[in-house]
């Protein structure tokens, strides 16, 4: 460990204990998965993760998550805008409820959202009467992932909008630029890093999401099967090799996303300061 520049006590104790805890809880379990998949030969590994059904699942996962994250980006920005700039009745309640998808168990979200699109609910019946099929299309996956991801966008954009340098915008308006120009040239560029960060977080969370999606998706191989469900299916089938191979592939995706998010956040922090 490097030099400790602090006069405070407890460095070795706290760091030592935390490191031990992280090792046992996070590192060793993660390595157990990676080591297990390392038993596969490279060609075996490659043939598992490039299997058509697996690739199709990755395609479904990535495309649904991407669409959901874009929808979240759009509505998340609007919600953050509305919550920071307008006063209206019930604003505090709505502000608190934005985090509901984060606080509510995914299984509850899953059964509730899938229930909404069945013939039991008015909405579901309305959609069926008008031949709008959500329940058995990937739209259902997108809906679940949109629900899961919305707080991430709102909560990263909101503080930036709040601490937005008003003078800058005022200056721009006083210089004669109209609102649209101000928005495009001043507001959007400043908010964009936060928006992208929120988008990336929603994306990362959505990519791995399981609970809410399996209740609502139709889980058809090649069409509407997401990667986490495929892992569980392999696991249930006693196909540990397959599960570990796809699991590590997912792990790599997660790490890359985490890296991107951290870089984005780093830049965001610098900009804010």
């Amino acid at each position: 460990m490097g030099k400790k520049t602090s006069r405070l006590p407890g460095f070795h104790l706290t760091l030592g204990l935390s490191l031990t805890y992280i090792s046992f809880l996070v590192l060793i379990p993660l390595f157990s998965l990676i080591l297990y998949s390392a038993r596969l030969s490279p060609t075996e590994y490659w043939s598992i993760i490039t299997n058509d059904r697996v690739l199709a699942a990755f395609r479904v996962s990535f495309s649904s998550t991407l669409i959901a994250a874009v929808v979240d980006g759009f509505f998340g920005f609007i919600l953050a805008w509305v919550l920071t700039r307008y006063a209206f009745f019930g604003k505090r309640v709505i502000d608190a409820l934005i985090d509901l998808p984060f606080a509510i168990p995914t299984a509850v979200a899953g059964i509730t959202l899938s229930y909404l699109f069945t013939a039991n609910s008015k909405l579901g019946r309305f959609l069926m009467d008008h031949d709008i099929n959500i329940a058995t299309t990937n739209a259902s996956i997108v809906i679940a992932l949109t629900f899961i991801g919305i707080p991430f966008v709102v909560r990263t954009v909101q503080p930036v909008l709040q601490e937005f340098d008003k003078e800058l915008e005022e200056a721009s308006i006083s210089l004669g630029a109209n609102f649209y120009k101000t928005f495009l040239k001043v507001i959007l560029p400043s908010v964009l890093p936060a928006l992208i960060t929120g988008f990336a977080m929603a994306f990362a969370r959505g990519l791995g999401e399981y609970g809410s999606v399996i209740f609502i998706a139709s889980n058809m191989p090649y069409e509407s099967e997401i990667v986490p469900r495929l892992i569980v299916q392999k696991l249930l089938n006693f196909d540990y090799k397959g599960a570990s191979a796809i699991g590590t592939a997912m792990l790599v995706c997660a790490f890359i996303l985490l890296l991107i998010i951290n870089l984005l956040q780093h830049r965001l922090q610098r900009r804010l300061n």
């Binding site: 058995t136 139709s218 889980n219 058809m220 191989p221 569980v232 249930l236």
Partner: peptide
């Protein structure tokens, strides 16, 4: 086949 659930109960629910 339009929905492929993992168990019989899931299919019946669908």
């Amino acid at each position: 086949v339009i929905v492929l659930d993992s168990g019989a109960r899931g299919a019946t629910n669908t």
